[in-house]
Design a protein around this nucleic acid. Structure first.
Lengths: 156, 156
DNA sequence: TATTGTTATACTCTATAACTATA
DNA sequence: TATAGTTATAGAGTATAACAATA
């Protein structure tokens, strides 16, 4: 164990590494650490596109769900409406999305990617797929699928 | 562009649910959602003990690594030193931990659980184990182990 | 009366720079 | 010169209350 010279039960923390066995048996702890690892790579690579994780999620959803509303994005991504406002405004300011009146509901606004937005999403999705493969390089394709399936059992 | 009633490939976002297939194929997205799900249950149940996730991690680490220093906790949990200060102060103020001079390094402070701290950790660890089982109830014991192992391949 | 989108705001979490005392 | 712990502070991220326009 970690008993350098003298006692054993009193001061094991003198060694550099701590015993993390309890935490390492928790799904929550490991899910957070795993997410954090990927998150770091994501931030590094996607800075080139000026996209954070939420930004990417929103743009990608709009690419595959043209005309989606803020409310739908919030419900899908577990974001609170007030916190989406500035994000959407920023995307609009960058010319990546357009707000059009919703065809069936005068209160709502349909969000659509612009041509520039579609181009960026295409590149960004490729970059994310690659970054994910790199960040999970120690997993086989089969393991990666299994991991995703098990994670979805936690929240879906 | 947006053809409201006739076409079907143009405005799919009229339905309530959005197509999330791209995001659902990403490990990062799923790890975050999975962690968030457990995180919610954790917050609900552990409020009774006055412990957030970091608080629990720190106390649990100290239970199994008596005399660990702030620096070691920071390195282990990926916390920045300034952000641990108030946490440790709070635990001290609640009478859960004690700061003792480090035996071999005059700069460092060894952190130790008090009797009250040890009692709380014992109860809290039991509660967390139970909460984890409930939050991952849709996983078999084997699946839970697999999930943890795969997550660790992402960061360890 | 309920819902969409919004403003304003507060609270928490995370990050950076700089200081002190020891090594 | 480098490290452990700390202070102060800034910036993200997340939360609530309240309002206008529309249903």
């Amino acid at each position: 164990m970690a008993t350098p010279r003298t006692r054993k039960t009193e001061s094991p923390a003198r060694s550099e590494q701590l015993d993390t066995r309890v935490l390492e048996n928790l799904v929550g702890y490991n899910a957070r650490r795993g997410w954090l690892a990927i998150s770091t790579v994501f931030a590094e690579r996607m800075a080139a596109y000026g996209l954070k994780q939420v930004d990417f999620s929103v743009l990608s959803l709009l690419a595959h769900n043209p005309g989606a509303t803020s409310r739908q994005l919030c419900a899908t991504l577990d974001i609170l409406p007030p916190n989406l406002v500035s994000l959407v405004a920023a995307m609009d300011g960058r010319g990546l999305i357009e707000r059009r009146p919703h065809p069936h509901d005068g209160r709502a606004v349909g969000l659509h990617l612009t041509a520039a937005g579609r181009k960026l999403v295409r590149e960004a999705e490729e970059a994310v797929v690659q970054l994910e493969l790199d960040a999970s390089a120690r997993l086989s394709a089969r393991e990666r699928e299994t991991l995703i399936g098990l994670l979805q059992k936690l929240y879906r």
